[in-house]
Computed example of a mutant assay.
Amino acid sequence: MNNRLSTIAIHVLGCLTFLALPYIFASNGLAKLAELPNNPHEQRNLISYLLTIVFFYTNYYVLIPRLFFHRKYVLYALASVGCFLLIESTLVAINRQGIGSPVRRQPPPIDDRMGHRPLPPFPNGPRPPFPSDHFPEPGSQPSGLPSELSQTFFLTLVGFLMALAIRVNNRWRETEQEKIQTELSYLKAQINPHFLFNTLNSIYSLAIIESPPTADAIVKLSSFLRYVIQESEKNLVSLRNELDYVGQYISLQKLRLGDTVQIDFSVEGNANGKQIVPLLLISFIENAFKYGVSPEEPSGIQIVIAIKDAELHCYVANKKVRVFQPTAVASGIGLTNTKARLQLLYPERHRLVISDKPDSFTVDLSITLS
């Protein structure tokens, strides 16, 4: 609640500061402010600043999230230009109603005796213009229109750039924060005593009987831990390395579980040259091992990863052998966080279908890789 109130206070203070700028930096700012109730030109300027604020929040809360972040750049540009034209047409309509039009001064009274004021001779040049020469003809456009149009364009551009810069910066910070939270969650999930103790006990059992796979199991475990600690810090990793990590995780699970679980794991297609966000697929696979493994009854897990051109398809299915709680966390990160990461990192470029049935749980994920 306090954060929300502070945010509202910051926005209100920012809007008031923006409205006060023309009077703060002007040499006669106080005089212009005092003239505001009776000066149509100052009233028009104030309206243009208010419309800029409206455009800023429209751009910030509507256009950028719904168009720019969804890569609909053409529609976003057209909508921004449309907002500018709407603001300009509003100000033109206000001008036609008399607000913001130049203030006309009455010409000096004419001489009653001659019907006009006598002109003194000016031998060295033409006569100076009458004050009436500066008055626009009826129906003509005010002379200040080009400058007013430039001012409207400048203010609209300021609102456009400020909204875009702040929103993109906030988006980047959200993504970075989500990444940090994900890394911390995975470190807690992967390097936890339960998983390590079970895996090390399995390796110890192999070492007791001097089994040949002992050395290979130790190498897999060290590579697995190194990947979680080092590679997960990057924004994108090689898809080949990510699949190797998934394979090492499944191999360690096979080593830990032995023959109690039937695991069907396959990778199809060529992953060379492609990149993916690290630690994105593993949560669905961990979820299958968490709720699809039981020593008391037959259980099986199917994992299929297919790559075709820029499309990656991941299918994970398991039989439910434990009670599945929708709010349960899958090895420390949970499916909810993974959905949020997909929305942040692959907007409009993924399709996730989860089927939660009483006796089975399946995940069908498709991603368009960059």
Rank of each mutant, 00 (worst) to 15 (best):
N59E: 12
Y60S: 07
Y60H: 11
Y61R: 05
V62L: 14
V62I: 13
L63V: 15
I64V: 10
I64Y: 07
I64G: 13
P65D: 05
R66M: 05
L67Q: 09
L67G: 00
F68H: 11
F69V: 00
H70V: 09
R71C: 03
R71T: 02
R71F: 13
K72S: 08
K72R: 12
V74D: 01
V74H: 02
L75A: 13
A77W: 05
A77F: 10
L78T: 13
A79G: 14
A79L: 01
V81L: 15
G82R: 00
G82K: 03
G82I: 04
C83K: 05
C83Y: 10
F84G: 04
F84D: 04
F84C: 09
F84Y: 15
L85A: 14
L85V: 11
L86I: 11
L86R: 00
L86A: 15
L86N: 04
L86F: 14
L86P: 06
I87S: 11
E88H: 09
E88V: 07
E88S: 08
E88L: 09
E88G: 09
S89Q: 07
S89P: 04
S89R: 08
S89I: 02
T90W: 03
T90R: 03
T90K: 01
L91D: 02
L91G: 03
L91S: 01
V92M: 06
V92Q: 11
V92W: 09
V92R: 06
V92G: 06
A93C: 06
N95L: 11
N95Y: 12
N95P: 03
R96H: 12
R96I: 03
R96A: 10
Q97N: 08
Q97C: 06
G98D: 00
G98P: 02
G100H: 00
G100M: 04
G100D: 06
S101P: 06
V103A: 11
V103P: 05
V103D: 11
V103W: 00
V103F: 01
R104H: 14
R104C: 03
R104L: 15
R105P: 09
R105F: 15
Q106V: 13
P107K: 02
P107E: 07
P108W: 14
P109S: 05
P109T: 07
P109D: 11
I110N: 10
D111Q: 05
D112T: 10
D112W: 08
M114G: 04
G115T: 02
H116W: 06
H116D: 08
H116Y: 11
R117E: 08
R117P: 10
R117G: 14
P118C: 04
P118W: 03
P118H: 02
P118Y: 03
P118R: 09
P118A: 09
P121I: 15
P121K: 09
F122Y: 13
P123Y: 10
P123L: 07
N124V: 02
N124F: 14
G125F: 05
G125Y: 01
G125A: 07
G125L: 02
G125K: 00
P126M: 08
P126K: 08
R127E: 13
P129D: 10
P129R: 06
P129C: 02
P129F: 10
F130K: 09
F130I: 04
P131D: 14
P131V: 12
S132W: 13
S132Q: 15
S132R: 12
S132V: 12
S132L: 12
D133N: 03
D133A: 14
F135G: 10
F135Y: 12
F135V: 11
P136G: 06
P136S: 07
E137N: 12
P138S: 07
P138W: 08
P138V: 11
G139S: 00
G139D: 04
